[in-house]
């Protein structure tokens, strides 16, 4: 029996995988790339702190696939971890800003999905990173949430398309994650609203689990859902939020 145990995780969850991670500035993509490497995947990362330039344009997605392929060979995992965060009062909404958010948060997913279907031969996994604010919101995060909301049907559509050949497609919805970027974002929001004290801690107090998540907690869940240990999980929205939304 001990032989069996040794075999199970002699290697990481993603041993032998070749993965493209597209990261944004919020530290989530960075954490995913690091976690995937520690789980045994070969990772090509675009964007984020250690990536190649500031990555947020839909026109660059195809080049990212090409670069990842050149670096790693044929891919079997793709993670789109890019998020553009933005607040705007409904009174100040502009269609220009909306289109900008849709281009980054939604169109990126469309282009990534299309290219992943082509790049990944046979089985594999594609995962999108979204946020709870695409499912419920506060007044000034409506446009940001709206631009992530398309990931629901986009994920399901790709999942249904890829199911027969074992290409699984899922979305991770994150709650309050402790990263410098999201702390700064909360502080900015707190200042705008004239709230004194630690704006981030005020938000965290509402989370049923009683703390913010770490970027690696998003990354760990993403790794398991992308791994062969989730062979029948597809078309699913995984809430990694300490119970923020539903508990």
């Amino acid at each position: 029996m001990s032989e069996m145990i040794d075999m199970t995780l002699a290697a990481g969850l993603l041993e032998g995988s070749r993965c493209l991670v597209m990261a944004g500035a919020d530290g989530i993509g960075e954490a995913i790339a690091n976690r995937f490497r520690s789980e045994g995947a070969a990772v090509h990362q675009t964007g984020g702190a250690s990536g190649t330039g500031s990555f947020c344009r839909v026109e660059d997605v195809a080049a990212s696939f090409t670069a990842a392929r050149a670096a790693l060979g044929k891919l079997n995992l793709v993670v789109l971890a890019y998020s553009q965060w933005s607040t705007m009062s409904p009174e100040k909404w502009s269609t220009d800003r909306f289109q900008e958010l849709m281009a980054s948060n939604a169109a990126m997913a469309v282009e990534t999905g299309r290219l992943a279907l082509r790049e990944i031969e046979g089985s594999g996994a594609l995962c999108f990173i979204s946020t709870d604010w695409a499912l419920a919101t506060s007044p000034d995060l409506g446009l940001m949430g709206a631009s992530k909301a398309p990931l629901g049907p986009i994920t399901k559509s790709l999942a249904l398309h890829g199911a027969k050949r074992g290409l699984r497609v899922n979305a991770i919805f994150m709650g309050l994650i402790d990263s410098p970027q999201l702390r700064a974002f909360a502080a900015e929001r707190g200042a705008e609203a004239g709230i004194s004290g630690d704006a981030f801690e005020r938000l965290v107090a509402r989370v049923p689990i009683g703390r913010a998540g770490t970027p690696d907690e998003i990354a760990k869940a993403t790794a398991f859902i992308c791994s062969p240990r989730s062979r029948h999980v597809t078309g699913v929205s995984v809430l990694v939020d300490g119970g923020l939304l539903y508990a």
Partner: peptide
């Protein structure tokens, strides 16, 4: 289906609570 329980029981799901994971091979998506 047991793999879903393994995930949620493990440290990989340390920030997941109050959540129910579908393990249905995409059935509910359509």
């Amino acid at each position: 289906v047991a793999e879903g329980f393994l995930f949620l029981a493990s440290d990989y799901a340390s920030y997941i609570t109050g959540y129910t994971l579908l393990v249905d091979g995409g059935s509910y998506a359509g």
